[in-house]
């Protein structure tokens, strides 16, 4: 029963959502839009609570057992409480200037800083992959050089054919491969969804049987 009920509920809800996507059946459309879509919002709200409890439990345990680097856990709990208090209780909630100052001036900047790591890592990953150790790696290097040179004004200055070659590689060769991959991903995604819908794949319920 512990397994059967979620499977039956999953199949029923999945079928309703599937029918709602393609057919005009008032009962099904109403059920999907008014009840199921709202229930997603409610269940995600519960999940926020579970996630927050998971976070706090781990870090309170780090603090109480004085594990390595426990002071970072204490800082996290303080910042968590501080931002939650500001968002919940200050006038205007998440529009309050005090709250938006910390969000816009700290959180967003820190996010951008981590994102900027991509620039450095692209170079280091390129360095490793462009080492010519095989015919394939050699071909990759040649194509990459053409695309890189063709994408910058210097390429057109050296030879007018570089931008055209770069454009041809991107539009003809690259797009064809990407579209083939997209077809495979779509079919795989449908197959995975169907396996979950009919209960063949049930690992998300915890274990296989």
């Amino acid at each position: 029963m512990k397994r059967t009920l979620p499977l039956v509920l999953g199949f029923g809800a999945g079928l309703v959502m599937l029918l709602d996507s393609f057919f005009n059946i008032p009962f099904v459309n109403n059920l999907a839009q008014r009840y199921f879509m709202r229930s997603i919002t409610v269940s995600v709200a519960w999940a926020v609570g579970i996630g927050s409890l998971n976070l706090l439990r781990i870090h309170f345990r780090n603090i109480s057992q004085r594990r390595t680097n426990w002071m970072f856990s204490a800082w996290l709990v303080f910042v968590f409480g501080f931002m939650a208090f500001s968002g919940f209780f200050l006038v205007g909630h998440n529009q309050n200037p005090f709250y938006t100052f910390f969000y816009s001036s700290l959180q967003q900047n820190l996010s951008s800083t981590v994102y900027a790591l991509n620039a450095y890592y692209m170079v280091s990953a390129c360095y490793r992959s462009f080492r010519v150790r095989s015919m394939e790696a050699g071909a990759l290097l040649v194509v990459a050089i053409i695309v890189m040179i063709g994408s910058v004004p210097l390429g057109a200055y050296i030879w007018g054919g570089f931008p055209l070659l770069q454009d041809w590689i991107s539009k003809m060769v690259n797009d064809a491969a990407v579209r083939a991959m997209s077809i495979g991903v779509t079919l795989g995604s449908l197959s995975q969804s169907m396996r979950n819908l009919v209960g063949v794949e049930r690992s998300y319920l915890g274990g296989e049987e």
Binding site: V44, A47, I50, G51, N54, G206
Partner: peptide, 16 residues
């Protein structure tokens, strides 16, 4: 984990 809703699923899968 990045999404709250995946946490209980991961917990139960690993526990099982």
């Amino acid at each position: 984990m990045r999404f709250h809703e995946v946490v209980p699923i991961a917990l139960s899968t690993i526990q099982m």
